[in-house]
Computed example of a mutant assay.
Amino acid sequence: MAQGSAAMAAAAFFALLAVAPLLCAPAAAELVRLEHLAKNDGSLSLLVVGDWGRKGTYNQSRVAHQMGKVGEQLNIDFVISTGDNFYENGLTGTDDQAFEQSFTDIYTAKSLQKPWYLVLGNHDYRGDALAQLSPVLQKIDSRFICMKSFIVNAEIVDFFFVDTTPFQLKYWTHPKDDHYDWRGVAPREKYINNLLKDLDEAMKKSSAAWKIVVGHHTMRSVSDHGDTKELLQLLLPVLQANGVDFYINGHDHCLEHISSRDSPIQYFTSGGGSRAWRGFFQPNEDKLKFFYDGQGFMSLQLQQDQAEFTFYDADGNILYQYSQWSLRETYLRPSYVAKE
């Protein structure tokens, strides 16, 4: 079944390559939608990792090894990357050896030979951003499925992958010595307005038991970058209006779970794929449930009525678990069951 799902996802992606220029256009009519079958029992298992592409250094290889072990235990269906896939400045082009050195040669475990659904991070935008969207990379490693914003429907869940880098105004107005590849994005306001409109329409059409948004940048965080005000002002209202359950991100090099005080949305940071930022902590107004300022990754197991998140460190130790019942169930359930 897993191989069938991988083949279906890859086939859907290749079918879209003929219209690849449209995927980068600011006036795209709607988000690309990929289908990924759940398991025969209707469940789904996956791993989430972010901020990893360092050619195996800063414990990237160590984290990858543990991902392989957990992936086998959970019989995962796919992997999600929350961005910053290649440091320091993305890829130089489709022939950049960093692609294989940081991805193909690192995530070698059998359990990780599944589709990887990826968003771009700010460091990816500092290189040739369009290279990561290119079919050339698919020929090198067919697992790599990267677009700017898209949807993965896995029957019981809709994952909304959101291109968050253009939201941050400082990348446009104060880039310092960094260059950002804004091809297909500028002008910023038009791009963001169209993206928010497309997201709102797609979320309203969704009938999945779970709605999960994946982006690179933090919305709520107590680590170095902290909260991203542009996402709170522009993106969060769309999530709240459409009953999104979880927002998953990277950007801060740590593992976090933050519970919103003013909505049911739960925030999860999985940005510990390589270099970690030890010692950075700045509290915010929401409720901090878990924080680890080291390397690691996250798993997510979904059923029709329950989601379970687990954080692991670079040695594969379980650091924290959180379970929640679906708020869209038609029969009474506890609002959540947390294991801390």
Rank of each mutant, 00 (worst) to 15 (best):
D262V: 11
L288F: 03
A131N: 05
A38C: 06
Q324N: 06
Q138N: 11
L234C: 04
P283N: 13
P264E: 09
E329C: 13
Y180R: 00
Q113H: 05
D51A: 00
Q132M: 07
K148L: 14
F281R: 14
F13A: 07
L44S: 07
A98G: 09
A20Q: 09
Q113G: 08
N85P: 13
S207E: 05
S142L: 14
I212G: 01
L37S: 15
G294N: 11
L300T: 03
G273C: 08
L319G: 03
G271P: 07
Q324I: 08
S270W: 00
H36P: 00
Q240E: 13
F86H: 14
D252L: 08
K190C: 15
L23F: 15
Y180F: 12
S5P: 03
Y58R: 15
Y125A: 09
M219T: 10
E88H: 13
F311C: 06
L234V: 05
G296R: 06
G316E: 01
I318G: 03
H253Q: 08
I318D: 11
G56T: 03
H179D: 06
I192K: 05
G271C: 02
H65G: 00
A15G: 06
D286F: 08
G127Y: 09
I145P: 08
I151V: 11
L16Y: 11
M219N: 10
F280Y: 15
R54I: 09
Y247M: 10
H174Y: 11
I80P: 04
M8C: 03
H123V: 02
K197D: 05
K148S: 08
P26V: 14
G243Q: 14
H257Y: 05
A154H: 01
Q233N: 08
A338S: 08
K205A: 03
A338M: 13
L236K: 01
L112C: 03
